Simulated scan of single mutants.
Amino acid sequence: MKHVVSVSGGKDSTATLLIALDRCPPGSVVPIFCDTGNEHQAVHNYLGYLEQALDIQIHRLKADFREQLAAKRRFIARDTRTGRAPDGRKVRWSNKGKRRALAVLHPSGNPFLDLCMLKGRFPSSAAQFCTSELKRDPAVEFQLDLVDAGHRVVSWQGIRRDESINRRFKPKFERIGPGMRVCRPIIDWSAEQVFALAKARGIAPNPLYMQGMGRVGCMPCINCRKADLRQIAVRFPDHIERIAEWERVVSACSKRGSSTFFPASHADQDVREVFTVSGIRNRVEWSKTTRGGRQFDLLQVLDEPNTCSSIYGLCE
């Protein structure tokens, strides 16, 4: 029996890992981390801390899209379709679009960026392919390999019902296939209980929680809160600049010629207006405003990058 624990570097997966280590036979726990390429370095540092503090090895998994990118390059270069989309635009890539895409459509080694180049767009809450292709699929493949090697597998997942509507009705235990089960030990827990367990075991929380982050993982996440985006811009401006560069590259890989990290305000927005209105830098300015997005929040503008602003009260 192998107990595979998905570790993200966040509070919930850390608590789940601690429970698995307490309950399972020595040597049977297999922690895994799916590297999306969009995490803060503090996450990777925290994984190293957990390995040292708990005397474990966390297996790093990373999706690879080199073959798919090569196939897309061939498709774009050879595209001779003659049909038209419902809005009247040609389905075929224009010669200008081909040159633009082929100039940048090369594997970067970063799973998140490579996936977005392959899709020609960024993920969204309605099409959250980042989770499925960068986290779920590598984890499932890893576990299926264990099953093929003759092991029974229990997949430990650190999710809680109060996180979202989609997770509200998840069962605590579930059978998902021959030789595979799912265990969600903290499904009914609160965030306070999760932090309390780590504290009781002498495990410090990820330092990002003391720096205004409500969630730890991708930075920024496509679902990040307005306050999270504001804190990222104040404390980690290099991440904003990285996303701005990714917007340029992914836009070049888009047949439409534009793509922003957060969805454009209007689907029919003119390409020339997209970055002015919906680009990451514009969204950062919006994050500094009060509700309604029309007036700057003067108190929030006074945020200092070296102060603690934990939303969980970890600094008290």
Rank of each mutant, 00 (worst) to 15 (best):
V5L: 12
A15N: 04
A15D: 04
L18P: 07
D22Y: 01
R23F: 02
R23L: 13
S28I: 01
S28M: 01
V29C: 11
V29T: 10
V30C: 13
P31G: 09
G37T: 07
Q41S: 11
N45M: 08
Y49A: 10
Q52H: 11
A53F: 05
L54Y: 10
L54S: 10
D55C: 13
Q57V: 03
I58R: 11
I58W: 07
R60Q: 07
K62I: 05
A63C: 06
D64F: 08
E67S: 13
A70V: 01
A70Q: 11
A71S: 09
A71K: 12
K72N: 01
R74A: 13
F75P: 00
I76A: 10
R78T: 05
D79C: 06
G83M: 13
P86E: 03
S94L: 06
S94V: 06
S94Y: 06
N95K: 11
N95M: 08
N95W: 08
K98P: 08
R99Y: 01
R100Q: 14
P107E: 09
P111M: 09
G120F: 09
G120S: 10
R121T: 15
S124M: 07
Q128T: 02
Q128P: 08
L134W: 03
K135W: 05
P138D: 02
V140S: 02
V140H: 06
L146V: 02
A149E: 12
H151Y: 14
E163V: 00
N166F: 02
K170M: 15
K170E: 15
E174P: 06
R175H: 10
G177I: 10
P185L: 04
I186D: 03
S190W: 03
Q193W: 00
V194W: 03
V194D: 03
A198G: 06
R201G: 05
P205K: 14
N206L: 00
L208A: 13
L208H: 13
Q211L: 06
Q211K: 15
G212A: 10
M213R: 14
G214D: 04
G217R: 10
C218L: 12
C221W: 11
I222D: 13
R225F: 04
R230K: 07
R235K: 14
F236I: 14
D238P: 00
H239W: 14
W246M: 14
W246A: 04
S251I: 06
A252Y: 03
R256V: 10
A267P: 00
F275K: 08
R281K: 15
R281A: 06
N282R: 15
K288D: 08
T289K: 15
T289E: 12
T289I: 09
T289D: 13
T290D: 14
G292V: 11
G293Y: 12
F296N: 08
L299F: 03
L302P: 00
L302M: 14
N306A: 07
T307Q: 15
S309P: 00
S310R: 00
Y312A: 09
C315V: 02
E316R: 15
